[in-house]
């Protein structure tokens, strides 16, 4: 059994040339094909980078996505995009609106996954947003109930996961950052995820940024995925204390670098974090990665954080004689 495999959560920052191209495209100054070529270039560069530093399980970096909910809302039927609403401070975003029955117009992310996988022999994760989060982060003018909306979305996400698996994806990640927002709805979260992962053979993962993880633990262990990917670094690993109240039973994606901070952690900090987790979880069940998607960092910062994840993991393995 391999132990302490390294990976990433999903998004990487877009290089300047791509940011500019996206801007130009929005202003209709460049064609779709031109933007696409640059998205592919950026994807290729990120795959090359991940290979170079020796990451074990790669991601495509989501160079063709804006926001994790808006992307699917734009690609799928049944969604409209609202006017701007404020998230905080001076930050605004277009919140999707469910206006009809949600459906794919054919595979959404599969071509991108195939492209990324064609560039490497390492496994590339399929990356999807979970139905509960898609529902919670959209307005609903059609289904009229949170459950109906989440389950309808779950069927669509399931179809997409199926297609990724058929294309050869060994790992499929279905992110649910909204999981702990309404703890009373955890049954719905679990029910919707069961619809997504039913019958899948690929290894399933769900990334959860815990608002208040204690409100959904240990019940969250019933989420029908093999692995939960959790932020650890930005809360000083205090989740590990939460696990003492009830043993953690799944594989864990162990976030060891804070993605909201420019500052690079010391290698000792990261190694200590990994060793801390090893006291409770066996090494073959730990996947070391950053806390969350890295898209809010600069390219240089993101690369430094990823390299650190790999270096620290290697040193821990060497020190403990792990394979």
């Amino acid at each position: 059994m391999p132990s302490l495999l390294t990976t990433a959560v999903g998004s990487y920052p877009k290089p300047d040339y791509l940011m500019q191209a996206r801007n130009q495209y929005r202003k209709k100054r460049i064609a779709r094909a031109e933007l696409l070529a640059l998205e592919r270039r950026a994807t290729r560069e990120w795959i090359e980078f991940q290979e170079r530093i020796g990451l074990d399980i790669l991601v495509d970096g989501e160079q063709y996505r804006g926001d994790m909910v808006e992307y699917f809302a734009e690609e799928w039927r049944g969604f409209a995009i609202s006017g701007l609403v404020r998230a905080y401070g001076n930050r605004y975003y277009h919140k999707p609106i469910i206006v009809g029955k949600v459906a794919r117009q054919g595979p959404t992310t599969v071509e991108w996954w195939k492209y990324a996988q064609s560039l490497t022999r390492k496994p590339v994760k399929g990356m999807l947003t979970g139905p509960y989060t898609l529902m919670d982060w959209s307005f609903d003018e059609y289904y009229g109930s949170r459950r109906q909306a989440a389950l309808a979305l779950a069927r669509v996400v399931h179809a997409e996961a199926r297609d990724l698996e058929r294309a050869g994806a060994e790992y499929i990640q279905i992110d649910e950052p909204a999981a702990s927002v309404v703890p009373e709805e955890i049954d719905l979260l679990i029910e919707a995820m069961a619809t997504v992962t039913r019958g899948l053979r690929a290894k399933t993962i769900s990334h959860i940024c815990y608002g208040d993880f204690t409100t959904i633990y240990p019940r969250i262990l019933d989420l029908p995925v093999a692995q939960l990917d959790l932020e650890m670094a930005n809360s000083n690993y205090d989740l590990l204390d939460v696990f003492k109240s009830h043993p953690y039973t799944k594989e864990i994606g162990l976030g060891v670098v804070d993605v909201h901070n420019h500052r690079l952690e010391s290698i000792e900090q990261v190694k200590t974090g990994i060793k801390h987790a090893l006291q409770q979880i066996p090494p073959e069940k730990i996947f070391v990665d950053p806390d969350c998607g890295l898209k809010t960092r600069t390219v240089a910062e993101a690369q430094a954080k990823l390299e650190l994840v790999v270096r620290a993991t290697r040193e821990v393995k060497r020190e403990l004689g792990l394979r």
Partner: peptide, 13 residues
């Protein structure tokens, strides 16, 4: 720091 405002997808200091 920023934290979530109730069960909304908005944040406050």
């Amino acid at each position: 720091g920023l934290i979530r405002y109730f069960d909304s997808n908005t944040y406050y200091r």
